[in-house]
């Protein structure tokens, strides 16, 4: 598969994935473009791999968790205003939408690594050992992030909305 073929076939999914990992459409666009430019330069190597797409997705996560962006996370709080811009202006009468919108806001408050882990676990449906491979860490570390993320989300949901859920 050439780089152009890869982009034609997978860019839509890649941008969606990046948006879920970063939780920020603007950042996702920025990171996806960064990653694709780098991937293009290395495509001869990447295309020989067993799973080129997984490698590119790993690049997206690594870029998201990079030094530069981690440091920025200290001084630039998550743009809740921007997030709010994507949400309905009026409360949705549907309970399901209330829950989902509450979750939308809560995921934004997670630390970047926890957000990445839940993206890989629930959006990408990767197993814990696969997530560990993507993030370059131990499975126990992934489990810890996952547990903390789920606990934080569960605890932060408004009381009437707190659902039950299985533990990782």
């Amino acid at each position: 598969m050439t780089f152009e073929e890869f982009v034609s076939a997978r860019l839509g999914a890649l941008v969606r994935y990046a948006t879920v990992v970063t939780w920020d459409p603007h950042l996702a666009e920025d990171i996806t473009q960064n990653v694709l430019v780098r991937a293009q330069a290395r495509w001869a190597r990447i295309s020989r791999m067993d799973a080129p797409e997984l490698y590119v997705k790993r690049m997206v996560v690594n870029e998201f968790l990079s030094w530069r962006r981690r440091r920025a996370a200290q001084s630039i709080p998550l743009a809740t205003d921007t997030l709010a811009g994507h949400l309905p202006e009026a409360p949705d009468p549907s309970v399901q939408r209330d829950e989902r919108d509450a979750m939308l806001r809560l995921i934004a408050t997670l630390p970047p690594r926890q957000r990445a882990v839940i993206a890989l676990r629930f959006y990408e449906d990767l197993a814990v050992d696969q997530i560990a491979e993507v993030l370059g860490c131990r499975t126990v570390t992934v489990r810890t992030h996952l547990m903390r993320a789920l606990a934080a989300l569960q605890n932060a949901l408004p009381a009437p909305l707190v659902p039950t859920g299985e533990k990782p």
Binding site: V15, R16, Y17, A18, T19, V20, W23, P25, H26, A28, E29, H86, Q96, E99, R100, D101, M103, L104, I107, I118, A119, F122, Y123, L150, L153, Q154, L157, P163, T164, G165, E166
Partner: peptide
């Protein structure tokens, strides 16, 4: 709703807001 289901629903919504 199950919390994991809720997370997935929120993630799908977020993905729909992709550029």
């Amino acid at each position: 709703r199950d919390i994991e289901e809720l997370i997935r629903a929120a993630q799908e919504l977020r993905a729909d807001q992709a550029p």
